[in-house]
Simulated scan of single mutants.
Amino acid sequence: MLKTIKITPLITYDFALELTRNNMQFYYKKHKIEWENACYAQNWQKSENLGIYQEQRCVGVIRLEQDAHACYLADLQLLPEVQGQGIGSHALDYIRQLAQVRQKQLMSLVVFLDNPAINLYRRNGFEIMQRNEILARMECNLTLNTQKI
């Protein structure tokens, strides 16, 4: 059973940076990509940053960007010990509802092809639209996909 989950703008930069860097270091190293704290800091400034709380404990971070038509999921990161408990699906439901309230037509994200999170996104209505050797750009059409509201 999913414990109480709350998504709120209360999130610290230091927690988000450490969590994201720790979760992504395997993929960055594997694909020979250098992590840059300055790049993360710059992206943090232009993102809408949200904390994911379970029982009063911050267990994850969401970073969103948007334009006139789309909501872009820049990050959905969870502490390893809470992954696989339905929190990611709960967060995607929240983001979907937020995007629809904001009258966005689609949600978009980029994920490493070898990241198991790709299956979470597929289960939640995302489809691969483009791919290269290591990354996939996925979209969820909000005008067609209203099943989770």
Rank of each mutant, 00 (worst) to 15 (best):
L2P: 06
L2N: 11
K3L: 03
T4I: 11
T4D: 15
T8E: 07
P9Y: 09
P9L: 05
I11G: 05
Y13D: 01
Y13N: 08
Y13M: 01
F15S: 02
L17N: 05
L17S: 06
L19E: 07
L19F: 03
R21D: 01
N23V: 00
M24R: 02
Q25F: 11
F26P: 00
Y27W: 08
Y28A: 00
K30L: 14
K32T: 09
K32V: 08
E34L: 12
N37E: 13
N37T: 13
Q45H: 12
K46A: 15
K46I: 15
S47D: 03
S47K: 07
L50D: 03
I52C: 09
Q56Y: 04
R57E: 15
G60W: 06
E65T: 09
A68K: 14
A70T: 14
C71P: 01
C71R: 04
Y72S: 13
Y72R: 14
L73R: 00
A74C: 08
D75E: 11
L76W: 02
L76P: 00
Q77P: 12
L78Q: 05
P80C: 12
E81T: 02
V82M: 10
Q83C: 06
G84W: 07
G86C: 03
G86P: 03
S89A: 11
D93L: 09
Y94H: 09
I95G: 01
I95L: 08
L98H: 08
Q103D: 09
K104M: 10
S108W: 02
S108T: 14
V110N: 15
D114I: 05
D114V: 02
P116Y: 03
P116M: 02
N119L: 11
N119R: 08
R122Q: 15
R122F: 14
R123V: 07
R123N: 14
R123W: 05
G125V: 05
F126K: 08
M129K: 13
M129Y: 15
Q130K: 05
R131N: 10
I134G: 06
L135G: 03
R137L: 11
E139H: 03
C140W: 04
L142W: 02
L142Y: 04
T143G: 01
N145D: 13
